[in-house]
Amino acid sequence: MDRMLLGLLLFFGVHALPLLGGVRQRLIDTFGRPGYLALFSLGSLVGLWLMIEGYALIDNRILWSPLSFGRSLAQALMPLALILVVAAYLPTLTRRYLRHPMLIGVGLWASVHLLANGDLASTLIFAPFLVYALLDMAFSRPRKTLIPHPKPQLLYDLLALIVGLIAFGALLFGHGLLFGVSLLA
C-alpha cells in the first residue's frame, strides 16, 4: 500500500502545483516551458507507475458489493471517457463546448470503475481520481494552456473519436495483461 500511496501523492502533488498561485509560472521561468512540461510529465508517469505497481500488491478485500451491471456499464461508457480525454488535447469542438473534457473523461473513468469494483485496491486508486476531477472542475480558473492549438474543427473531433475507440480496443484486449483483470472473460 505504501507504493500506491506514494504514487498517489506524487501524481496529485504534481497536478496540484498549477493550482498554487504563481508556482507554475515560477517553474516555467526556471526550467523553461519544455523543461516544465518534461518534469510535469515525468512526475505524472512515475506516480502512475507507482500506483499501478502498488495496486497489484494490495489485498482484494471487498468493501461493498459492486453493481451487478457495473462491468457492462464500464464497458459501455469507457469509450466515451477515452474520447473525451483525447478531445481535450486536440482543437476539437468538444473542447470548445465542454469546459473540461479531460476531467469529465477522468471522472467518468473513475466512476464506472468504482461502480464495477467494490474492493479496497480499486477504491484507493479510483476514488482519488474522481474526487480530483470533481474538485478541479469546481475550482478551476481559466488559464493559458502551454500547448498551442489552432481553431477548433470537426476533423479533430473525428480524430478524437477514432483514437479514443482505438485506445478502448487496446484496453479491451490488453486489460488482463496490463492490470490483471480480463475484460473479455
Score class of each variant (00 low, 15 high):
Leu48Thr: 06
Ala88Arg: 02
Val181Cys: 06
Gly105Gln: 09
Ala56Lys: 11
Leu45Pro: 03
Ile62Lys: 12
Gly180Asp: 12
Thr94His: 13
Leu108Gln: 07
Asp136Tyr: 08
Ile166Arg: 04
Leu178Gly: 12
His100Cys: 09
Trp49Gly: 05
Met51His: 02
Phe173Met: 07
Phe168Gly: 08
Leu19Phe: 14
Ile166Gln: 01
Leu158Ala: 09
Leu20Pro: 07
Asp2Lys: 12
Gly70Phe: 01
Ile58Ala: 01
Leu57Arg: 04
Met51Val: 12
Val112Lys: 01
Leu103Glu: 11
Asp2Thr: 15
Leu155Met: 09
Leu50Ser: 02
Met137Gly: 15
Ser72Lys: 00
Tyr132Ile: 08
Leu57Tyr: 00
Trp49Val: 00
Ala56Arg: 06
Ala81Pro: 00
Ile83His: 10
Ala121His: 10
Leu154Pro: 04
Leu42Pro: 04
Phe179Ser: 04
Phe139Gly: 15
Asp157Asn: 05
Leu159Phe: 04
His113Phe: 06
Asp29Asn: 14
Phe69Glu: 01
Pro34Tyr: 09
Thr30Ala: 14
Ala74Lys: 03
Ala87Lys: 04
Thr123Tyr: 12
Pro34Glu: 07
Leu73Ile: 02
Tyr97Lys: 08
Gly13His: 05
Met1Glu: 02
His15Leu: 06
Leu20His: 08
Phe139Asn: 13
Ile166Lys: 02
Pro142Met: 14
Leu124Lys: 02
Phe168Asn: 10
Gln75Trp: 07
Arg96Cys: 09
Gly32Val: 02
Thr30Tyr: 07
Ala110Val: 03
